[in-house]
């Protein structure tokens, strides 16, 4: 690959992102950072966990994104009685014409490019764990057979933090597999006006499909190639270590409130997210500002707080913000 080719790919990357933003922006009001975060996950081969109160447009965002991207989309509504087989599929018994029985694998909704796991915390941990292999290995094992998933494979899970009745907190291993955890906030007054203008008339805005599967895969490849200098990588590592209470680089708040710090997967997410962020900001290298920009989304769900933090009502965002603020470049 030549420098000219790299330049072309960078330009293509940015044009595609601009198109996606424009199309999604026709339906989704505001939340530009969340849209960028979701796209970052998609391009960094990660999965995203969306958290927000009911009605802020979590599901709508994912549906819009699926419409904009020319990908196979499926939606799973998680409920307490959902079983792993309902997600990954099951082998059913069939009879041939001669009356002979045989098993046939019926793929579940996970066999799609974009999977919306709506209200993922309503299913039992057993069912939630059915996603583990798919999210990490991009394959599904049913019986003694492993079925590869078509690329790009992208899980978007939504979670409602308010209704705790009848929900199951996601296991740490499951949480760690999400590349980003994004929070959708309540819109402001102007944004609410815009939402009402768009959604209370006879015709709701429609979006066009602007990105095909091949283009997404090429964008993924481009994002991975962005070079990272050692000092920047070192900064990402120091950020991660600062969240570990037993580390000698641990931050004071981490020592007080954190039981387990971010995993190496968190550091990977920091660097990969920073690469996409750098391209989105017209940079051909990763800067510490890029790492800082994605630190909260990449690490907030990977910190396990201790009892003291819960008693003092301290959340991971507060701890991470202080760490990002105080860990020097």
């Amino acid at each position: 690959m030549t420098t000219v080719e790299v330049d072309r790919r960078i330009e293509q990357f940015q044009n595609n992102m601009r198109l996606v933003r424009t199309e999604v922006g026709r339906v989704i009001v505001g939340n530009d950072d969340v849209i960028d975060g979701v796209m970052t996950c998609l391009l960094a081969r990660g999965h995203v966990l969306l958290e927000g109160i009911p009605g802020v447009g979590k599901t709508k965002l994912v549906q819009t994104l699926a419409d904009v991207l020319h990908l196979k989309f499926s939606r799973i509504q998680f409920t307490p009685d959902l079983m792993p087989g309902d997600i990954i599929g099951t082998s059913i018994v069939r009879e041939d014409e001669g009356g002979k029985k045989y098993f046939e694998f019926q793929p579940g909704p996970i066999f799609a490019n974009m999977v919306l796991a709506d209200e993922i915390n309503r299913a039992t941990p057993k069912t939630q764990s059915a996603l583990l292999e798919a999210m990490q290995e991009n394959s599904v094992s049913a019986g003694k057979t492993t079925h590869p998933l078509q690329q790009p494979f992208f899980v978007l899970a939504t979670m409602n933090p308010l209704e705790m009745e009848g929900t199951y907190p996601l296991p740490e291993a499951q949480l760690d597999r999400f590349f980003f955890k994004l929070k959708m906030g309540f819109p402001g007054v102007d944004e609410l006006h815009e939402v009402l203008d768009r959604t209370t008339h006879a015709r709701e805005p429609q979006v066009d499909r602007v990105l095909a599967q091949g283009e997404i895969l090429e964008m993924r490849e481009t994002a991975r190639e962005v070079p990272v200098a050692r000092p920047v990588q070192d900064y990402a590592i120091r950020l991660t270590l600062a969240t570990h209470p037993e580390s000698n680089q641990a931050h004071e708040l981490a020592k007080k409130y954190v039981r387990f710090g971010a995993s190496p997967r968190g550091t990977q997410a920091l660097i990969l997210g920073a690469k996409v962020h750098a391209l989105l900001n017209d940079r051909v290298h990763v800067a510490t500002d890029d790492v800082r920009a994605v630190a909260l989304s990449a690490l907030r769900h990977r910190l396990l707080l201790n009892f003291e933090a819960e008693a003092d009502r301290v959340d991971t965002d507060a701890i991470l913000s202080r760490i990002v603020e105080q860990v020097g470049v």
Partner: peptide, 15 residues
């Protein structure tokens, strides 16, 4: 945004 620092680091490597 670390343009000079990154370039200085890359200039000392042969990638």
């Amino acid at each position: 945004h670390d343009t000079l620092a990154s370039a200085l680091w890359f200039s000392s490597r042969s990638e």
